[in-house]
Design a binder for these strands. Structure first.
Lengths: 184, 184, 184, 184
DNA sequence: GATGAATGAGTCTTCATTCAT
DNA sequence: GATGAATGAAGACTCATTCAT
C-alpha cells in the first residue's frame, strides 16, 4: 500500500470517527506511522485530503447513478430497486458517506457534493415514477413532489443507519411503506 | 436582558451561522459587546454555553411531547397532527435545532439530546399508530417498525428544511404520502 | 512601558541584529519576556510589527524633510547642512534605518519607504542646488544629475556608517569632497 | 554543462531574484530539473552553494584588482579608469554582486567578501591618488580619507544601479563629480 | 551519480481560559 | 459583576537534510 493511500485510509478512519477538526495532522501522522511532513508531500493541505476523499466518493456515486440510469433506459427499474441499491451503495461507502455528512458546513465541496447526491437521486426517482405512472404500476401522484419525498426518506434513512447503527434497521419496512403509498 | 441571556442569544446566532468551532470566544465577546472574561463569569466554558442552549431546547421539546401526550390521552391525536405540530416546533426552534444537528459528533450531550428527540417522537408515533389500529383508522401494520419509519421521515424532512431551505417544501406532500401508506 | 512598546523595542533590536527571518516570534517572545500569544494581541502578524517600525521611521523622516524644506523656503540652507542633518537623522534612527535597509527585498513596504527616502532627499538637493546656482554659490552644473550623485553619496555613506561602524568615519571629508566639486 | 554547474547557475538566478530564504532547495531542484538529493551530492548544504557563488565572485574580483594593480605599476591608471572598470566589472557580474549584497547579514562569508571588496578598492584608490598627487595631476588632499570617500561613492553607485535599475544612470556624472573635486 | 520519499525540528498563528485590577 | 491583557498549549504547515534504492 502506497504512503498516499495509507494517509488517505487513516484520514478516512479518523475523520469519520472524531470529525475533521479533531483529526489533527499530528494525530494523523502518529496513527499512520509517518511524520507530519510526509502528509504534505502527498497532499497540499489538510483540506486537500478531505477533497480527495470526497472526489472518490463522487466518482463512486456517479457509477451508482449510471447503473440506475441504464436500468431506467431498459425500462427495468423500480422504486424499491433504486432504494435498495442506494442502501447497498451507502453500506459499501459507509465511512466516506459519514465524512461527507459530517463535513457539510465546513467545506463548500462537501455541500456541493451533497447537492449532487440529492439532485441525482431525485432525478432518477422522478424518471422512475414517471415511467411507473405511464405503465400503470404507480398511482397517478404528483411526480416531482413525490420524488422529493422518497428522496428525503431515503436520505434520512441512510443517515440514521450511519449515525445510529444500534437503532432498529427499518430499511425493508421503509421500502414497503413507500410501495403502499404510491404503488397501485 | 441579562448579560447571561445576551451571551446565550449571541452564541446561538453565531454557532448556528458559522458552526461551533468558528464561533470563537473572542468573536462572541465582540458581537455581544462584552469582554471575553465576562463569558467565564456566566459559563464554565465555551462548551458550557452549548450545553445551556441544548438544555433549553430539551425543555422546549418536552413541552411539545407533553402536549402530544395529552392529546393522545384524550384519544384526540392523528399522525398528521404529530407531524404538523413537530414541523411547527422545528420552525419555532430553528436556530437551536440547527445547533443540535450541527454539533452532533462534537459533544456527547448533543448526541444524547438527539436520542431523546428520536426516542420520544418514536414513542408517541407508536402510541398513535397503536390507537389508530385499534380504532380501525390505520391499517394493521407492524406498529414499532412503522413508527420508526415515520419518525425517520419526519426527522429527515426537518433536517432538509433546515439545511436546504431553497429546496421545494414537501412537508404537506410528505404528510399525504404517509396517510396513503398507513391510513385505511 | 506598555507591552506593545516592549514588543516593538525588542523586535527592533532583534531584527536589526539578526535579520527579519532569524528574528522568530518564539525568540522575540522569550527576549521580551512575554508569551508568543501576546505578540498577536498587539500585532496582526510578524510582518505587521515590521510595518509599524517602518511607519514610525517614515514619520520621523517626514519631519526631517519638513525641517529642510522650511530652511529652503527661508533661503537658508546649504548642501552641507542637508548632508549633516541627514547624518544626524540617521544616527538618531540607527536601528530603524538598519531594519529598512536589511528588509529591502523582503517587503514591498520596505522598498516603497526606501524610494521615499531617495526621492525626497533628491528633491531637496535639487532645490538646494538650483538655489545655489541662482545665487552663484554653486557652479553651473546639471542640477538633476548632480542632485542624484550627491544623494547617492549620502546614501552610500550612511549605509557604510551603519553596517561598517569600524571603518574610518569620512562623513566630514565627504562634505568637503562635495563642496570642492560643486561650490564656487 | 556539469550537474554541479547547472545547480550553481540555477541557484544564482533564483537567489538573486527571490533572495536566499525564498530560494528553497525544493524549488531549486525543480527549476534545475534534478532531484533534491542530487544537490547534496554536489554541495554540503544550501549555505555551501552560496559559498561557492561567493568564492567565484571573489576570484573574478581578484582578477579585476590584479589588472588595476598592473596598470598602477605601469603608472598608467587614473581614478576614472578605476571607476569605469569597476562599473564594467559589476555589470559583468551583476547577479553575483546582487547575491553578495543581499546575503550580507546572513552569512559571515558574505560580510567577509564585502570587506575584501571595500578594502581592495580603497587600496588601489589610495595608491592611485598618491601617484596622482606625486605627478601633480591630483590636488594635494588627504590621501586615505579621499580614497575612502571615492570608494564609498563607487560602492553606493553600483548598489543603486543594481537595485534601482529604473533610476537615472549617473555613473558618468559621478566620474565627473569626482574629477572636479580632486583633479587639478 | 541520481532519485525522491521521508523526516522532524522549527515557523507563524489561533484560541479557550485565567487573573489582577 | 466586568474588564481585557496575558497565557501557553496546540494547530497547520515548511523546508533543509538524509538515505534506501
Amino acid at each position: 500500500m502506497k504512503t498516499k493511500d495509507i494517509i488517505l485510509a487513516t484520514a478516512k478512519e479518523m475523520i469519520s470517527e472524531v470529525g475533521f477538526h479533531k483529526a489533527t495532522t499530528a494525530n494523523l501522522a502518529k496513527m499512520a506511522n509517518i511524520s507530519e511532513g510526509t502528509i504534505y508531500r502527498h497532499f497540499e493541505s489538510k483540506e486537500d485530503i478531505l477533497l480527495h476523499i470526497l472526489d472518490a466518493l463522487e466518482e463512486s456515486f456517479s457509477y451508482y447513478i449510471e447503473a440506475i440510469r441504464q436500468k431506467l433506459d431498459r425500462d427495468d427499474c423500480s422504486i424499491e430497486e433504486i432504494m435498495n441499491e442506494y442502501f447497498s451503495f451507502v453500506e459499501d461507502n459507509e465511512i466516506d458517506m459519514k465524512i461527507m455528512l459530517s463535513t457539510y458546513g465546513l467545506l463548500d465541496s462537501s455541500k456541493r457534493l451533497m447537492a449532487v447526491f440529492l439532485k441525482n437521486l431525485e432525478l432518477v426517482l422522478e424518471d422512475c415514477i414517471k415511467l411507473g405512472v405511464k405503465k400503470g404500476t404507480i398511482r397517478d401522484v404528483a411526480v416531482e413532489e413525490n420524488a422529493t419525498v422518497v428522496m428525503t426518506i431515503i436520505f434520512g434513512l441512510t443517515r440514521m443507519q450511519l449515525y445510529w447503527p444500534d437503532r432498529r434497521d427499518v430499511r425493508a419496512e421503509a421500502v414497503e411503506f413507500c410501495r403502499r403509498s404510491i404503488l397501485n
